[in-house]
Simulated assay, not measured.
Amino acid sequence: MPDTMHSIRPALRASTSSILANPRGAALFLDVDGTLLDLAATPKSVRVPNGLIGVLQRLSLRLDGAVAIITGRLISEIDLLLQPLKLTASGVHGAEIRTSPTGDIERVTAMLPADVVQDMRKLALDIPGVIAEPKGAGLAVHYRLAPQAEGVVLAALEAALERHRGAFELLRGKRLFEVLPAGLSKGTALSSLSALPAFRDRMPIMIGDDVGDEAAFKVSESMGGFALRVAGEYYRDEGADFAGPRAVLGWLDELACKLERAEKPSLHP
């Protein structure tokens, strides 16, 4: 892949140098949709690019397992996308966690009330192109295929959540709204994962592409780490560190190659 480490973005240059200088002092936290994968019309129609799974596996090995997924999706969905690879992960914006690649998926909070799920499923049936995606403790309502329905979807969600005032938060994303348990975010997810043995005392590098990643960016930077943004529908090119998921994959691949070369013994005395 082409060299992507010449980027003029200071945070990308600094984080790259830090990882290469001390791999055992760094940890990668990765969003998925819009970061590792190109966005698609529906959540189920995304495609995993060639080479991604192998690159993540190689990096996890070189960083002693300090590579984690932080996503709004269910962890089980990520496992299907990346199979056979499993990584330490947080799902549904911190409502799920898996503390090791071989561990069980644990729910951090209670299930979303059935009445909210039922209301959103009915809404999806009534409006062609709207997709209701229950996620256990959370829910996403996509309107990418029906952009004209944004106002109707928002009003329906606000009415449904009014019956559970204070228990949930509404997060606006890329052509979707997400219902999340109050007090949880990708920031709380990063904090929890950073305390695990494989990640403890390492500098975090969080890569994401959307408003939901901002909480994790703040936590990462507060811990002396980096926040790397991916251009797309939320971040403009001039404010991002990567032009898109393809650039992220290129950087991850090149990083793995450089770490592998650094570990090979020198041929000269």
Score class of each variant (00 low, 15 high):
Ala140Met: 07
Leu59Arg: 09
Pro23Gly: 03
Leu85Arg: 09
Arg9Asn: 13
Pro43Gln: 02
Phe226Ala: 00
Ser7Ile: 02
Val32Asn: 04
Ala41Phe: 08
Arg261Lys: 06
Val32Met: 09
Asp79Ser: 01
Met206Arg: 10
Phe226Trp: 14
Ser7Val: 08
His6Ile: 10
Val230Gln: 09
Ala11Ser: 15
Ala195Asn: 13
Leu56Met: 07
Leu56Phe: 02
Arg121Ile: 14
Ala227Phe: 01
Ser17Ala: 15
Tyr234Val: 15
Ala27His: 05
Leu154Pro: 00
Leu87Ser: 04
Ala149Asp: 06
Ile70Phe: 01
Ala243His: 13
Ala26Tyr: 08
Asp119Met: 07
Leu87Ile: 07
Leu193Trp: 01
Leu52Cys: 06
Tyr235Glu: 11
Arg200Pro: 04
Leu59Trp: 01
Glu221Gln: 15
Pro134Leu: 10
Gly138Gln: 08
Ala21Gly: 14
Phe242Val: 14
Asp38Phe: 06
Gly94Cys: 07
Glu150Cys: 02
Met120Gly: 02
Val211Leu: 14
Ala240Val: 13
Gln57Lys: 15
Leu59Glu: 03
Gly65Tyr: 03
Val248His: 00
Val48Phe: 03
Arg107Phe: 10
Gly138Ala: 13
Gly136Tyr: 05
Leu190His: 04
Lys122Trp: 13
Ser60Asp: 12
Glu96Ala: 06
Ala21Met: 07
Ile78Asn: 02
Thr88Met: 06
Val153Lys: 06
Gly250Cys: 05
Ser194Glu: 04
Arg261Trp: 00
Ala114Asp: 15
Arg107Tyr: 14
Leu82Glu: 05
His6Gly: 14
Ser60Phe: 06
Leu59Val: 10
Asp104Glu: 11
Leu176Lys: 04
Ala66Ser: 07
Arg202Pro: 05
Ala189Trp: 00
Leu125Lys: 15
Asp64Ala: 12
Gly91Val: 09
Val153His: 11
Glu133Leu: 13
Val46Gly: 03
Phe29Ala: 05
Ala159Val: 09
Met223Glu: 12
Leu12Lys: 14
Val230Ile: 09
Leu176Trp: 14
Leu52Ile: 00
Val179Thr: 06
Asp209Val: 13
Leu80Ile: 13
Leu112Asp: 10
Arg229Tyr: 00
Glu158Ala: 04
Ala149His: 14
Ala21His: 09
Gln57Leu: 10
Val248Arg: 09
Asp253Phe: 02
Arg175Val: 03
Val230Ser: 10
Ile53Glu: 03
Pro43Tyr: 10
Leu180Asp: 07
Val219Thr: 12
Thr88Tyr: 01
Met203Cys: 14
Ile105Tyr: 00
Leu139Gln: 14
Arg246Gln: 12
Val230Pro: 10
Ala66Gln: 12
Val32Ala: 06
Ser100Thr: 13
Ala95Met: 13
Gly166Asn: 10
Leu74Ile: 02
Asn22Glu: 12
Leu85Trp: 00
Ser90Lys: 06
Val46Tyr: 09
Val55Asp: 00
Leu52Met: 01
Leu193His: 00
Ala41Arg: 12
Leu30Ala: 09
Glu133Ile: 08
Thr102Phe: 08
Asp213Asn: 04
Ile131Trp: 15
Leu228Ser: 05
Glu96Val: 06
Leu190Pro: 11
Gly244Tyr: 03
Tyr234Gln: 07
Gly54Ala: 11
Gly129Arg: 12
Val55Ala: 12
Leu259Val: 08
Asp210Gln: 04
Leu36Arg: 05
Ser90Tyr: 03
Pro134Gly: 09
Ala156Asn: 08
Met223Gly: 05
Ala110Gln: 11
Asp104Gly: 07
Thr188Arg: 01
Leu112Ala: 04
Ser90Ile: 08
Ala247Asn: 05
Leu30Trp: 00
Asn22Ser: 11
